[in-house]
């Protein structure tokens, strides 16, 4: 026997994203997609589903994909010492750590800065495509994937902070000076854009598609 799952949207109710109050949309408005519906308790805008969720997520995601290339190719850091000048990309920074024997740190930075952003981009793309094709494939797995993406995304900012501290500390005119490179901007933008993409995506769409094919 299949359990009867009733969603708030199916029951004609709206739930507040800020305070979680479930309310009935005002009778005057037609349908529950009214753009003016506000939560009676806290006044936040309430929508059955985040407005234009898919279009917005795609926009942030595509921008992130485009910037992903300069973020990894351009140097995020320039080191100039008396003897030479050196430019570091994200990956060369990891390789440096690995070679200098800090394997644990190298691994942390590699996962945070290289694996996570790419995995996040691919995961969000997969989620968007699955919603677009109204896939009913394992909503639990996809819901968990979305949760993981939202949880882990912030840690990609790690390298930006590493560069920030290095830039501030290594200002030793007679030994070495570190400055931030153009890659830092691109990389920061990728992290912010993927965070925005994750916020714009509405996980309820996963279950909507799964439901539609169930009936």
């Amino acid at each position: 026997m299949k359990p009867a799952y009733v969603t708030a949207a199916a029951a004609g109710l709206l739930s507040c994203p800020a305070c979680a109050l479930v309310s009935r949309p005002p009778a005057a408005t037609t349908g529950i997609e009214s753009p003016t519906a506000r939560c009676p308790r806290c006044g936040a805008g309430v929508h059955a589903r985040k407005p234009d969720s898919i279009a917005r997520t795609w926009a942030f995601l595509l921008a992130a994909f485009v910037l992903y290339i300069p973020a990894n190719v351009l140097p995020i850091m320039d080191t100039s010492s008396l003897f030479d000048a050196q430019q570091d990309t994200i990956l060369s920074g990891v390789i440096y750590l690995w070679k200098s024997g800090s394997w644990g740190t190298a691994l942390i930075v590699f996962i945070a800065s290289v694996v996570t952003p790419l995995a996040k981009l691919l995961a969000l793309t997969a989620l968007l495509l699955s919603v677009h094709w109204k896939s009913a494939w394992r909503p639990h797995v996809r819901a968990q994937l979305y949760r993981a993406v939202s949880l882990v995304g912030r840690w990609s900012m790690l390298d930006i902070f590493v560069v920030t501290v290095l830039v501030a500390l290594v200002q030793l005119q007679s030994v070495a000076v570190i400055t931030a490179g153009p890659g830092a901007f691109a990389f920061g933008a990728v992290v912010v854009l993927t965070m925005l993409a994750a916020f714009s995506f509405d996980p309820r769409l996963i279950w909507d598609a799964a439901e539609a094919t169930d009936d």
Binding site: P3, A4, Y5, V6, T7, A8, A9, A11, L13, S15, P17, A20, V22, P139, A143, Y146, R147, P203, R204, I206, W207, D208
Partner: peptide, 22 residues
């Protein structure tokens, strides 16, 4: 889960923020 076609129950309802289940 509130039963389908039932009157609104007295207890407060909550909708899941991730899957919208009442």
């Amino acid at each position: 889960i509130p039963k389908r076609n039932n009157a609104m129950p007295e207890a407060p309802l909550i909708a899941c923020p991730e899957c919208d289940l009442l």
